[in-house]
Design a protein around this nucleic acid. Structure first.
Lengths: 335, 335
DNA sequence: TTGAAAGCGCTAACAC
DNA sequence: GTGTTAGCGCTTTCAA
């Protein structure tokens, strides 16, 4: 990497002349500017980003902390984040908490040493269960902004991007009710997460609001340790009259579908299934799963936009919470 | 963020004293060291990473360029990269090429301005098809090391981490032959990629080496634009005697399995299917797909180890190509 | 044992 | 129109 200093030597002018010429300052004579630019191009000069960061106290990079990159939802959010960041001229430093609090706190602390201008993150499960918040406060105290998406900490005042989980679940359940389903099972294996609780509430509210239909909703909470597959099979065995399933996490809808297929159920005639997910799992199911679709990349994009706006605003701006739309995609596992 | 300078003022000593004390230099008196450390801790001092980078001309960060984060293989490699990087004290800046050459070249160029010490990457499809290499050479000329994994550029001399695609495909095919399959279809929708070519070669070599069995292998190349699903269905329609399928990309094995299921085939009695993939898609299939399993996270880990070794070695070291093991996981779609 | 000063690459206020 | 200088935060050589 060639530096300003070296260019200056080659050109027999001062460093600042080169700097100004390259930055289009009107102070420098046209001829000089041309000469400088030519040589700079010839030597493929590029300003050293580290020096700029030090000078400006701005790194133009965003720290992204994600609980689980193998979860397609988060991968897609990251996709959106990267795309929008690049557009805005920011780099992203990616850390994975793998759902553990210590890794999350550690990443925050490490990157808060001047490596990033701000954070975009979704909270690790462990953090959320144990309601840790001190590490967030530390960062915010240092005036480094945090934006939380999807899994957010209510106790922390910061920008947030969420999907309307309550409404999504409400609408999905309402659809099953309208189909005339009477014995609906709610499969919930993310009960410890805020989004899990919200979605469950939405389902129950839908049932309540449609009391007159006499539809029934039974919630099955499945722990992280138990095997989803066997759990769901015993569910079918115990409960022969199930005619509707709403699965509020990423994958149990697919598993329920496979289970129902194996038993020879006629889907969607005998039983309707709705999952929560992105489109990604669809090539894998037959018939194609109806889902509540999270617009995951939109979450990423919105997050970057909001954070960058804050980073680049001169005056302090109000904290915002943005809700991203979802859609109910009825495919082949519903009527 | 408190700086050395501010600490020095509070302590009434010079900046360099503070620096030395904190870095455990033996030059400084015990009492002073203790005093400095205490105050530093009280104010939660952390050295500014940007300043350190500028000083040392080392950023302790790795640029990671990935073709497609929504592809589970790459997500898992990234997982491995992140894990090992964190362990080694490196951050990763992630860029996504989304398979396009320009984005890839752009990311390389942008990060080569001092943002990263080296690169770990897998080549975009477009880059590989059009055999672009100039952008790699530019970077290497600047003495910034590149490590390529999985999809590598043969023409470029740099560290590489690959899986033995040839052997993997060879073994998988050999298994089908030993099962007595006579009419085996090779589904190849990544024919433009080096790995696709290698895997196909491996399959054919297996057939050749087992000529006496009279097993037949037909390669079906499927373009990116055509719909995999319909393509595979017409395949079944045209060819009634198929009794073995080997699908060498991430998802077509699953699609073939679904297709076969739909037609009421008895798997694996009538037909065996082997896919190439990570474990991730398995919850979605029934019966469980037998696969050639790429140890994707191991690829990431190995990549980081090799690159960091190079970055931190004083003397120049030889270029290496490391081959990561794969395994043939026979599950329920093979005998 | 401690401090002053230079320098990493850059920008910008100020001087000429 | 061009150059000098200070300073961003840090380490390190050299001087005291």
């Amino acid at each position: 990497m060639i530096t300003l200093k070296e260019l200056a030597e080659k050109l027999n002018v001062s460093i600042s002349t080169v700097s100004k010429a390259l930055n289009g300052s009107s102070e420098i004579g046209e001829a000089t500017v041309a000469r400088v630019k030519e040589v700079a191009k010839a030597y493929n000069y590029k300003p050293n980003r580290v020096a700029l960061s030090l000078k400006n106290s701005k790194t133009k990079t965003i720290g992204v902390i994600i609980p689980d990159i193998l979860n397609h939802f988060f991968a897609k959010v990251l996709y959106g984040i990267e795309k929008e960041s690049a557009k805005q001229g920011y780099n992203i430093i990616t850390c994975l908490s793998n759902e553990v609090f210590e890794k999350e706190a550690n990443s925050l602390e490490l990157l808060a040493n001047g490596s990033v201008d701000g954070f975009i993150m979704s909270i690790a499960q462990e953090t959320q269960i144990n309601k840790h918040t001190e590490h967030f406060k530390d960062i915010l105290d240092q005036k480094i902004p945090i934006l939380m998406f999807d899994r957010v900490a209510d106790a922390i005042a910061c920008d947030k991007v969420i999907i309307n989980d309550f409404k999504a679940a409400y609408n999905a359940t309402t659809h099953l009710i309208k189909e005339g389903r009477k014995n609906i099972i709610l499969i919930n294996n993310i009960d410890e997460l805020s989004v899990g609780k919200l979605r469950a509430k939405g389902c129950f509210k839908a049932i309540e609001d449609a009391k007159y239909t006499k539809s029934n909703l039974t919630e099955i909470k499945i722990g992280k340790t138990t095997d989803l597959e066997t759990e769901i099979e015993t569910l079918f065995n115990k409960n022969k009259t199930i005619d509707g399933i709403i699965a509020i996490d990423n994958i149990s809808g697919v598993i329920a579908l496979n289970s129902a297929n194996k038993r020879g159920c006629n889907i969607p005639k005998d039983i309707s299934i709705i999952g929560f997910s992105d489109d990604n799992v669809l090539p894998f199911t037959s018939p194609k799963l109806s889902t509540v679709t999270q617009h995951s990349d939109a979450i990423g994009e919105a997050s970057v936009k909001i954070l960058v706006k804050r980073l680049e605003s001169k005056e302090p701006i109000e904290i915002v919470t943005k809700t991203i739309d979802f859609s109910l995609n009825l495919r082949e596992t519903t009527l």
